[in-house]
């Protein structure tokens, strides 16, 4: 599944990043790399983007970009 499908207040581990070029590089530069844990904090009032905690800070990301991030739920 991708990060887009994850509900608020759930924790996931990043499995893989799809896509290429500037957007992918930007996502990785911000610390979303394979194996990192992501906590989905909240959804914007209009339903998009989402806000997550990764590597100890808060990051907002559009659902469109979240579909590039393959994740697995933490048991």
């Amino acid at each position: 599944m991708t990060l887009k499908e994850i509900n608020v207040k759930e924790r996931v581990i990043v499995k893989k990043l799809n896509g290429q070029g500037a957007v992918k590089r930007r996502i990785m530069d911000m610390g979303i790399t394979r194996g990192v844990e992501i906590y989905v904090r909240k959804l914007a009032p209009l339903g998009d983007p989402i806000e997550v905690t990764v590597r100890g800070y808060e990051l907002s990301i559009r659902k469109e970009e979240a579909t590039m991030i393959e994740v697995e739920k933490v048991a």
């Binding site: 996502i27 990051l59 907002s60 990301i61 970009e65």
Partner: peptide, 12 residues
Amino acid sequence: GNPAPFVMEMPA
């Protein structure tokens, strides 16, 4: 071109 990705830090 693609719109700028909205991958943005939410500062404290």
